[in-house]
Write a protein that binds this DNA or RNA. Structure first.
Length: 252
DNA sequence: CGACTTTGACCAGCGC
DNA sequence: GCGCTGGTCAAAGTCG
């Protein structure tokens, strides 16, 4: 049975409208969405997005972490005490009595990141790689959850996040982090092969270069200047679908 | 049965 | 210090 959560790039409902690089950004997380709205900002060391408070608050129900389990009780010695209380704990409860894996204490160095927006009804788009979903989180100020995926290839640490563009929920924002250490295992369509090639190219070490054209379905957005100069001379299918003016969002 | 998704909790970072 | 939030873990569930 064909998977429902993938869409082939030939699908007319699928076409990317923009592309931007987020390399070297320490944290874009409140919203990469804002990147398309704020005036161009030259790369600086500090986080670029600092205006989250300007977003509308949707009064989403807070999900306070009501767990009062202390780290000590998780540690191990108290486990036995709990189990001796005579209660038959479920496996689920026992799970959280186990010591968790040690998480890296060192501040993780950010992998190169880049993101692009795609108009699609499905969240997880085929890009030629195989991904395993390892988490989903509700996003503040957004009714749509953010999904986290890892590349299933062994020794490949590439991750991607998928979320809906808040200002236009018909768009999916896909953020890649890291570089694949292997060739794509599955290329079911020519377009996915092209996409893969471009993703590999974009994840090359030279992070600050203007992105290449990804394929005929997407158009690069020069993140720093928002100049259309990055547009290719070859006007692909996208230009048959979406006016150029709607592709390059620029605010002067 | 393996691959993948779901889901709730843990943890770290950050702002107040 | 506390609470919020994003990111991750890992057992259980689902699917082919």
């Amino acid at each position: 049975m064909e998977r429902k959560d993938f869409v082939k790039m030939e699908d007319p409902s699928y076409y990317s409208l923009g592309f931007m690089e987020l390399m070297n950004m320490q944290d874009f997380s409140p919203s990469i969405f804002d990147m398309f709205q704020v005036p161009p900002v030259p790369y600086v060391e500090e986080p670029l997005i600092q205006h989250q408070e300007s977003l509308d608050v949707l009064n989403a129900p807070a999900t306070p972490n009501s767990s009062s389990i202390s780290s000590e009780s998780i540690g191990g010695q108290n486990n036995e005490e709990h189990e001796e209380e005579g209660h038959h704990k479920t496996k689920k409860e026992n799970k959280y009595l186990k010591p968790k894996k040690t998480i890296q204490k060192n501040k993780k160095e950010r992998e190169p990141r880049f993101a692009f927006m795609t108009k699609s009804e499905v969240d997880h788009l085929e890009d030629g790689f195989r991904w395993r979903k390892y988490g989903q989180k509700a996003v503040k100020n957004s009714p749509f959850p953010r999904s986290y995926y890892k590349c299933t290839s062994p020794s490949c640490n590439v991750k991607k996040r998928v979320e809906r563009y808040l200002n236009d929920t018909s768009f999916v924002v896909t953020t890649y982090e890291g570089q694949h250490t292997h060739p794509t295992p599955v290329l079911t369509t020519r377009s996915s092969a092209v996409c893969h090639e471009q993703l590999m190219r974009l994840s090359a070490p030279n992070h600050c270069q203007v992105p290449y054209l990804m394929n005929n379905y997407s158009v690069p957005l020069n993140f720093y200047s928002h100049e259309p100069s990055a547009l290719p001379t070859d006007h692909g299918l996208l230009h048959d679908i979406v006016p150029k003016s709607s592709i390059v969002k620029k605010e002067d």
